[in-house]
């Protein structure tokens, strides 16, 4: 009899996991009904399993994609492989050296630009399309704006349905793909600038409900994104509104530093107060949505490539 014990345990586990065949399940149910000992065993087993099942889910570190990209670059450069402690340290040291050199070069470039912007002659009669004396943009690549907007709130379902209504109201259903994960909602938006402005305008009315916000501006390479913590809706809108990719990236870096400084300094409240006076570019306030309102009509059908926006909106439930 004792030799059969392991099989019984396996059956019990498979029954609990719903992994028995239909006929076996019926037979095992009958056996359970007639065996109180087995029922007690099953109860303890269920409690043990539930302990693990209900452990809190941990979230991956932010900017994982960026780190993946760095790793891919390091591998390409040094042929680094695996998590061996030695190769890891050597790789990290080399990476730090390169980063230091890059930082010095970047600093030099920024200082040169700064000096140039001070001493460069300014055209007194600017012509159409900008003056000849302006500092040239770092890059003038035209293309779709790509980014990610992370929004954390305590009432995810409410904001989720609000956002879905906004998508419907703005006639953007064909431009939005939505994915529901356990603890977050993903909206993949691919539309033109005007549409995204309408969406952001709607979002501005619930922006105060977000405990945390972060806007990531894609620089065009895998995982290389500039993160703006605590981004306001006007910052997001103005970055999306920037048509020149180079200027947008430059602008994003400035906003990122600015927000980081605001978070760090005690004068944050003063900066926030100053910001309130800045109006959102090209964004009239929009009424709250109601189910009876008609859909917007006359939406442009095929925007130019440069006017396209690919935005991933990540809506998360706050753990608080």
């Amino acid at each position: 009899m004792k030799a059969k014990q392991p099989d019984m345990n396996e059956m019990l586990n498979a029954y609990m996991d719903g992994e028995l065949e239909a006929r076996q399940t019926i037979e095992f149910k009958r056996l359970l009904e007639n065996t109180p000992e087995l029922r007690a065993q099953l109860r303890v087993l269920k409690n043990t399993r539930n302990l693990l099942h209900h452990l809190p889910r941990e979230e991956a570190p932010e900017e994982l994609a960026h780190q993946v990209r760095s790793l891919l670059e390091r591998k390409a450069l040094f042929g680094e492989g695996g998590t061996g402690q030695t190769s890891k340290r050597v790789g990290a040291l080399l990476f730090q050296k390169i980063r230091a050199v890059a930082a010095v070069l970047a600093l030099g470039a920024v200082l040169s630009l700064l000096v140039y912007s001070i001493v460069a002659p300014v055209d007194s009669d600017p012509g159409e399309g900008g003056s000849s004396g302006d500092v040239a943009p770092l890059a003038s690549i035209q293309g779709p704006v790509r980014g990610k907007l992370e929004l954390v709130c305590t009432s995810m379902p409410n904001v989720d349905s609000f956002l879905m209504r906004s998508v419907q109201f703005n006639d953007l259903s064909s431009c939005v793909q939505k994915e529901d994960l356990v603890d977050q909602r993903l909206f993949y938006v691919s539309c033109d600038r005007e549409d995204i402005k309408a969406l952001l305008s709607d979002l501005s009315s619930v922006w105060h409900q977000f405990d945390e916000t972060a806007f990531y501006v894609n620089t065009g390479e895998l995982g290389d994104m500039i993160r703006i913590d605590g981004a306001s809706v006007s910052q997001v809108a103005s970055l999306i509104n920037e048509q020149d990719a180079g200027k947008r990236i430059e602008h994003a870096r400035l906003e990122s530093v600015r927000n980081s400084m605001r978070n760090m300094t005690a004068s944050g409240s003063m900066m926030a107060a100053m910001e309130e006076k800045i109006t959102m570019p090209n964004m009239p306030p929009r009424p709250m949505l109601t189910s009876g309102e008609p859909n917007r009509t006359g939406k442009s059908e095929s925007p130019k490539a440069g006017d396209r926006v690919e935005l991933t909106i990540v809506l998360r439930q706050s753990p608080r």
């Binding site: 991956a60 570190p61 994982l64 994609a65 603890d183 993949y188 995982g223 990540v314």
Partner: peptide
């Protein structure tokens, strides 16, 4: 690739 990372990063990390 970023979408794929975003989709699976929490589950894999966990």
């Amino acid at each position: 690739m970023e979408r794929l990372i975003l989709k699976y990063q929490n589950r894999l990390y966990n």
